[in-house]
């Protein structure tokens, strides 16, 4: 089936099997390998992207469902010379080690900052509960999100 979607501001028309997942379109078809796959039960959040401005787990969305929608991935929010404030905060606070959870974590965190008022440590921890990180113990991730919330 044919699906057209806008990814990071660019329109793509793809022909996919009906059971194709959004994450496979992003990684396999569009070469946007910044979005990662860390599980097969929708529980790690490594695949998190924004769909029409809200964070979703792209391993849990069918490509067919995003026809006409706008998707933003980690590649679409900033570049090394012009980092998104959340990206910059992750670097400044050492909120990543192996980097595998990081794209999903950043996409979730941006959604969190944009949609939850008066963030504090507890709210950040609860808000990121859907994203697993095995490296950082979350300590510096929480710090980064609170820092970024100040500047966003």
């Amino acid at each position: 089936m044919k699906v057209s979607l806008t990814v990071n501001g660019r329109r793509h028309d793809v022909d996919v099997a009906p059971n194709t997942l959004l994450v496979d379109v992003l990684r396999g078809r569009l070469g946007l390998t910044g979005t990662h796959v860390g599980c097969d039960t929708s529980q790690c959040g490594a695949c998190t992207v924004h769909l029409d401005g809200r964070s979703v787990k792209s391993c849990t969305v069918l490509a067919a469902q995003v026809d006409g929608a706008a998707v933003t991935t980690i590649e679409g929010i900033g570049s090394p010379d012009a980092l998104h404030p959340m990206q910059a905060a992750f670097r400044d606070c050492h909120a990543l080690q192996c980097g595998f959870c990081t794209p999903g974590m950043i996409m979730s965190a941006i959604d969190l900052v944009q949609n939850v008022e008066n963030l504090d440590e507890r709210k950040v921890r609860e808000g990121l509960e859907g994203n697993l990180c095995r490296c950082t113990g979350y300590h510096n991730i929480v710090k980064a999100v609170l820092n970024a919330a100040e500047s966003m």
């Binding site: 390998t33 979005t35 590649e75 090394p80 670097r91 400044d92 050492h94 794209p103 950043i106």
Partner: peptide, 19 residues
């Protein structure tokens, strides 16, 4: 010192085996 590897990871430019 801030980590130099971070720039590629926070911008989605890491290169893992599955990539």
């Amino acid at each position: 010192v801030k980590r130099r590897e971070d720039l590629r990871f926070i911008t989605g430019r890491g290169r893992y085996t599955d990539d």
